[in-house]
Design a protein around this nucleic acid. Sequence first.
DNA 1: CACTAAAGTTTCAAGCTTGAAACTATTCCC
DNA 2: GGGAATAGTTTCAAGCTTGAAACTTTAGTG
Lengths: 150, 150
Amino acid sequence: MTAAPLDPLSKRRLKAWIRLLSVTRQTESRLRERLRVEHGTTLPRFDVMAALWRFHDGLTMSELSRALLVSNGNATVIVDRLEREGLVRRTPMESDRRTVQVKLTAQGKQMFDSMAMDHESEVNRLLGNLDAQDLEQLRAILLKANAQET
Amino acid sequence: MTAAPLDPLSKRRLKAWIRLLSVTRQTESRLRERLRVEHGTTLPRFDVMAALWRFHDGLTMSELSRALLVSNGNATVIVDRLEREGLVRRTPMESDRRTVQVKLTAQGKQMFDSMAMDHESEVNRLLGNLDAQDLEQLRAILLKANAQET
DNA sequence: CACTAAAGTTTCAAGCTTGAAACTATTCCC
DNA sequence: GGGAATAGTTTCAAGCTTGAAACTTTAGTG
């Protein structure tokens, strides 16, 4: 539907996107490897646990998939596996019987705690070249970019 | 192995990473949807074709997976499917019989051309809020971040 | 109250992705 | 030349991911 790219910045935006994707993929790949080698888990499982740790009153499945920007079906299978491993618990809601509340179990909290600091220091290492000014600029740019998402 | 995160910027780097991931996922999701709806294809297929278009003398499987930051096994199945659809061709190399050269077919080139401009204008729209200065800063920051990747 | 629309979740098929293992071809080194 | 190590590719099992369809429950409307 969009017309031909007369915008003179079009090519630069495309290059910026490619670079953004590349840095993100490389970083994700490092983090995935670390979780696998050091903690025997995967990035999606970690992401779910991190979200549940953050919202420690629990999240519904829909809130979870929205927070993680993944599909509902995807959230279901990851929570299924975490639940089978005893790291997470589904509780049917009284107020609205369509929904379930997902929470970390005590074991899940413990597991997450054992990973979180290591994960943070790996992120800190991977982005270690960025100083305070870089981080502030990046923050501003990403917020700006995000505002566009229709 | 890394020690506790005494770095005072550690938390900010973590937040920056989460934001980076979020923007990237949202953007990827938009682009994927557009390719699906408008062109009946997927992002990984598009990525492979874009790499082959860019290096129009062809790439080996290993070069391809390195360029796309995906595993060799992954590259194999995507190229398999593209080949089955006639968009791509594998040619055994004379010089080194371990390797194959992957190239776009004429049909593949045509298909890519029909998608590329649309894809670019979608990227341009999604990052439309970023002006020349933003793009330059982003470029510098991403290059800096990239330099760290051990 | 019935009907309809909407929201929340799961199921499903298809495709993507990884990392390890297997296989083939090449290069290196004695 | 004969191994041994290395490089390129594919195969494989397991898990991730999507989007659509089905199912259940709730809310809204007459």
